[in-house]
C-alpha cells in the first residue's frame, strides 16, 4: 500500500468522524465520532513517523492517545452530569444559554 492510499484511508475515517459529529444528537455518539477522528489522526502521525524515520512521531502518537483518554474521562463525566440534570443526553436539549 502506498503512502497516498494510507493517507486517503485516514482522511476517509476523519470525514466519517465529522459526519458523525454533525449528524448525531446523542452526546455519547458525539464522543464516539470524536474518537474516530482522533484515531485517524494518530494513524497519520505513525505514517509520517515511519516516512521521516526516528522516534518522535511515535512519541507524539503516545501523547495523542493519553490526551484522548483524559478527554474521554472528562467528557463522560460531563455527559453523566447532563443526564442527572436533564434526564436525557441529547445535546440539543441543553439550551439554557440560548435566548
Amino acid at each position: 500500500m502506498t503512502v497516498q492510499a494510507l493517507l486517503l484511508l485516514t482522511s476517509a475515517l476523519f470525514c466519517m468522524g465529522i459526519y458523525g459529529l454533525l449528524a448525531r444528537r446523542n452526546a455519547i455518539a458525539l464522543l464516539l465520532s470524536a474518537e474516530l477522528m482522533i484515531n485517524a489522526v494518530t494513524i497519520n502521525l505513525v505514517t509520517f513517523s515511519r516516512l521521516a524515520g526516528g522516534v518522535t512521531g511515535q512519541v507524539f502518537a503516545v501523547f495523542t492517545i493519553a490526551l484522548t483518554v483524559a478527554e474521554v474521562v472528562v467528557g463522560l463525566a460531563i455527559v453523566i452530569l447532563l443526564f442527572r440534570w436533564r434526564r436525557e443526553i441529547a445535546v440539543d436539549s441543553a439550551n439554557e444559554l440560548r435566548h
Partner: peptide, 26 residues
Amino acid sequence: DIDSSRRLPAALASAGLFVAMASAIV
C-alpha cells in the same frame, strides 16, 4: 433516534471535506 434531523447536510459537508483533502493528497 440518536441522530439529528440534519443528516443530509452533514453527509454533504463531510463528503466535500473528503473531496478537498483527497484532491490535495492525490
